[in-house]
Structures are given as C-alpha cells and as structure tokens.
Design a protein around this nucleic acid. Structure first.
Lengths: 188, 188
DNA sequence: ACAGATCCTTTACTATACTAAATACGCCTG
DNA sequence: CAGGCGTATTTAGTATAGTAAAGGATCTGT
C-alpha cells in the first residue's frame, strides 16, 4: 500500500546540488555576482553563500535567482518525485484508444494516449487549477477541430497543436471518418 | 534581444499559492498539523504559518513537506518558466524530419519531433546532468531498436518507449526501410 | 610601481524562518 | 457542567537566511 512517498532520503544531495547549479549557470552567462545580484534583486553575499552551500535559500530567493537565470525552479531542485527504474515499453496490441501508452503517472510526468474520435464526436476540458501542464496533439489520421481559449484551430493529418492546459478547450471531429491522434500531456 | 526572463512579476502569487496547496493536500489526507509535523520533521507551528502565508519556507522545509505529502516540489511552485499565450499549430508541410513541431523551448516544456531514421542509422545520448527529463518515442512506421541503461527494447510500428533521460541510451534502425517515429521529450 | 577597475570573499548587523511550549477552541463522554 | 482529548493558534526564544559595507585579490592601463 505505502509506496515510498518520495525523496526525504536524498534531501541533502538535492539541497547540496543547487549551489553548483547556480554557479554553473552564472558562469555560463558570464555574470558576476553583483550583476546577478541586481538582476535577481538578491544581495551578492547571499548568492555567494548559496553557491558555496553555506546557506539554504528560501523559496522567494530561489524563485528570484531562477527567474534571473532563465530557468524554472525545477531545474535546481530535481525533485522529480520518487526515483524509479528504466523504461516502459508498450507493445502494439496494448496501444488501444483511450489507454495511455506511457509509464505510470507517479513515475513519469508525461502521459501519452492514442485516441480515436468518431465523426461528430469530441470533448472539452476546463482550465486545470494547478496550471502547470501542457498538451500536445499529433493527428495520425483524419481531422480534428480545436478551440483553445476561444481561438479556433483545424488539424489535418500529420499536423499538431501544442498548448498549456491553463486554457479552456474543446475539440470535435468535423470529418466523415474517424480521426486518430496522439495526445501527450504533462502535469498531475 | 531581452525576452522577459521569467516570472519575477508573479512572484507573490506563486509564493502565495503554496500555503493553500499544502493545506488542501493535508486535508485531503486527513492529517492534523502535528501528524504532518512528525512525518515531515517540521514543527507544527511552522507548517501552520506556511499554510496561512505568514511565512515563506526554505527549500529544505518545502522539500520535507512535499515529500511527506507525496508530491514533487514543482506541484507547489508552479514556476513553469515564463507565461505565454495560447497554442502553437504546426501545419503538415512544416512537419519535417528533425524539426520540432512543438512550441518554442522557452515557452513550453514539451518538445516533439518527427524523425526518420534510415536503415542502419541510429544515435545515442548521454545521461542529462540536469536529470529531470523524460523521453517518449512512438513509432509510426518501421522498427527501432533501443538500449536504455543497458536494457534492450525493440519497437515495432505503433509501439512506444518511455524513459527518463538520466539513463544513457542508444538506438538504431535494424530494418530494411526507413523508420518514422515521434519523439517527445521534456526538460531543457 | 601605482591608480583604478572588477571581481570574490568576509564581517557585523538585521530580518525572518523555525522550534518548543503554552494557550485557546471545539467535541465528545460521563 | 466538569474533565479530558485532539485540534488549531499564539507566544517567546533561537537559529539562520539575508543585507550592507568593508576587505583583499587579481588584472588592467599609464
């Protein structure tokens, strides 16, 4: 029943890894401590201590640094939830419409499904509250019509649409034959 | 030249949103403050203040809480890099081998490409240092052979493979005709 | 060799995250 | 209405994250 809830063990490694990452990115951009300090609105001394591992930043300061370095905070934290093995292989006979062909949701962020939408059929989705996800649709066969945040899109065979799930969206199959598409999404 | 480097504006909203999320998850699990306190090794008072927004936690304490609640820290931060508009539509004529059909990398986390691998050809990739990414391969036509972290996989038409990019990997097309596949990956 | 930059580091101080303990608010049960 | 029990909140104190300013190293150019 109880799956290992997450890191907790490798906490020190995670925290210890963030300093070097900051330093590396700063070097990559040829920024001095003070330059980064003004960009991030964090004192140079604080950045220095974080880089050296002498200090553990608060969320706000890490957000400031991540923003100034053009990276999401996830890049520094490497939480990634539980650690799991290797790869998940889904065989052709297991690729059914509506069933994901990706690994378990708690092991992976990506979720992929091949879906067949019958002529005239469709669906809709509200904005996800978490607000963090994306969706990527690739049409294998047929046609799909989308409306994302009010804007219409018409996808023919071998076309794709990519959007963030914070927008409301609807889709239908306007054609005369079933539409097959790959749906890949991120987020919980 | 200078694209808005990231959040920095919505900083308050981001930090302000983490308290409610903690409270919601705690309620969802029917945990009292003190129960969560012992599980996370954080004082109940601290959790309370974080939930109320009276305090901004450090990375370590957020990691502890996230772990105890069984979520990656990303769930609480919703960084997701810069915020951008709407959806990206890639038309059939623009879907070329090797060219991504997803939105710009700084706007989206997902990166998708249709790749044609000639017979006998292939490639390899080292473990990504960041360690945060995933890759998802879906074979449209032909056959691809993979080796991920030493383990072999053979993908036929309409089969997929899903793995984390922290593992080294190699792939080849063992067949006599070109193999077409969709590659979707996360991370920078 | 001496200014004058520019960078990293250190120091002394302030702000605040965090802890432990006390207080206060239900909600039972007798 | 007591008296407990579990809960959320508050309070006082300590640890540490954060700032501002000084120090010291290294490389310019004149």
């Amino acid at each position: 029943m109880s799956v290992d809830p997450g890191p907790a063990a490798g906490l020190d490694e995670i925290v210890g890894s963030i300093g070097p990452k900051v330093r590396e990115l700063r070097a990559q951009r040829n920024l001095s401590l003070q330059q980064l300090a003004v960009r991030a609105d964090v004192s140079a001394a604080a950045i220095h201590k974080v880089e050296r591992g002498d200090m553990v930043p608060t969320i706000t300061t890490l957000l400031k640094l991540a923003s100034a370095l053009g990276r999401p905070v996830g890049h520094f934290i490497d939480d990634a939830g539980p650690r799991y093995p290797v790869a998940v292989h889904t065989r052709a006979r297991d690729v059914r419409s509506g069933a994901p062909f990706t690994g378990p949701a708690n092991q992976f962020v990506l979720d992929g499904t091949v879906t067949v939408t019958e002529p005239g059929a469709g669906g809709s989705a509200e904005p996800s509250r978490a607000g963090a996800g994306e969706e990527l649709v690739y049409v294998l066969d047929g046609t799909l019509e989308f409306e994302v945040a009010g804007e219409p899109y018409r996808l023919a065979r071998h076309e794709s649409l990519h959007y963030r799930t914070e927008h409301p969206r609807r889709w239908t199959n306007p054609g005369a034959k079933p539409a097959r598409a790959i749906w890949v999404s991120t987020g919980s």
